[in-house]
C-alpha cells in the first residue's frame, strides 16, 4: 500500500467520526418545534342547550317569582299597550329587560298575540287555547306550522340520547331552549379555535387582490 491509500483511509475514518458527531449532536437539527397548541376551553364541548328556558329554570329550582305576574298585575284587567310614533311598543320600566324583536315586519308587536291579557301567567294561541308559560312549544307551533311539523318529527332542533329507541331514551328540546321567545333569531356566538396546521400556512394576500381585480 502506498501513501495515498493511507491518506484515504485516515480521511474516511475522520469523515465517519465527523458524521458520528453530527448524528449524536444533531448538527443539522430536527424540524423546528412548532408552538404548543393550547387545550381547548371546556365550554366548547359543553352539550347544554344554548339558553335556559323557563321550564328548565323552574325544574332546576330557580326562583319562580319573576313568572308570578299576578303579584303586580290584576287578573281580568288587561293593561293597555303603549306604542310610539313608529309603532314600536313602549316597554314599561319593569320590563325593560325584554328585547322585543319577533318577526321582521313589526307586525308581531302586540304582547297579547302570545300572552293572555286576562291572565298574564298564561299564554294563548290564536285559536283560543290557553297554555302555561312552561309549555310554550305548541304556542310557537300555532304560527310556525312547517317548523313545528319538523320539530315533531325530531328534525328541527336537537334530539339527544338514543337514535335506537329500543336501547334507550331520547330527549327533545323545546323551542325556548334555543330561541328567546321575544327575540327568536338564533344569536351569534364565539367560534371555537380553528385548526392548527402541522406546518404554518403562508399567507397569500396577493392572490385575493388579483381575484378582486378580475371581478
Amino acid at each position: 500500500m502506498n501513501r495515498n491509500s493511507n491518506i484515504a483511509l485516515v480521511g474516511i475514518a475522520v469523515a465517519f467520526l465527523v458524521l458520528a458527531a453530527a448524528f449524536v449532536f444533531d448538527l443539522w437539527g430536527r424540524t423546528p418545534a412548532t408552538p404548543p397548541i393550547p387545550l381547548v376551553d371546556k365550554k366548547f364541548v359543553d352539550t347544554s342547550p344554548s339558553r335556559v328556558s323557563i321550564a328548565e329554570f323552574l325544574r332546576k329550582g330557580g326562583d319562580p317569582s319573576d313568572y308570578e305576574c299576578n303579584i303586580c298585575h290584576e287578573k281580568n284587567k288587561p293593561i293597555k299597550i303603549k306604542f310610539d310614533a313608529d309603532n314600536n311598543i313602549i316597554l314599561p320600566k319593569e320590563h325593560l329587560d325584554i328585547a322585543l324583536s319577533h318577526g321582521s315586519h313589526k307586525r308581531n308587536n302586540n304582547c297579547y298575540n302570545c300572552h293572555d291579557e286576562m291572565n298574564l301567567e298564561l299564554l294563548q294561541t290564536r285559536d283560543g287555547r290557553q297554555l302555561k308559560l312552561v309549555d310554550s312549544t305548541p304556542l310557537c307551533g300555532s304560527c310556525h306550522g312547517p317548523t313545528y311539523r319538523d320539530w315533531e318529527a325530531g328534525v328541527h332542533g336537537r334530539t339527544s340520547g338514543f337514535w335506537d329507541r329500543g336501547l334507550g331514551d331520547y330527549s327533545r328540546l323545546g323551542c325556548a331552549s334555543c330561541h328567546n321567545p321575544h327575540s327568536p333569531k338564533f344569536p351569534g356566538r364565539e367560534p371555537a379555535p380553528g385548526p392548527h396546521a402541522l406546518h404554518p400556512i403562508a399567507k397569500a394576500p396577493a392572490h385575493h387582490e388579483s381575484e378582486r381585480t378580475h371581478e
Binding site: V45, D46, T47, P49, S50, G154, V155, H156, G157, R158, T159, S160, L173, C178, F186, R189
Partner: peptide, 10 residues
C-alpha cells in the same frame, strides 16, 4: 350531534 347548539346535525 350531541354538542350542536343549532340542532343542525341529524
Amino acid at each position: 350531534l350531541e354538542v350542536c347548539p343549532a340542532g343542525a346535525r341529524k
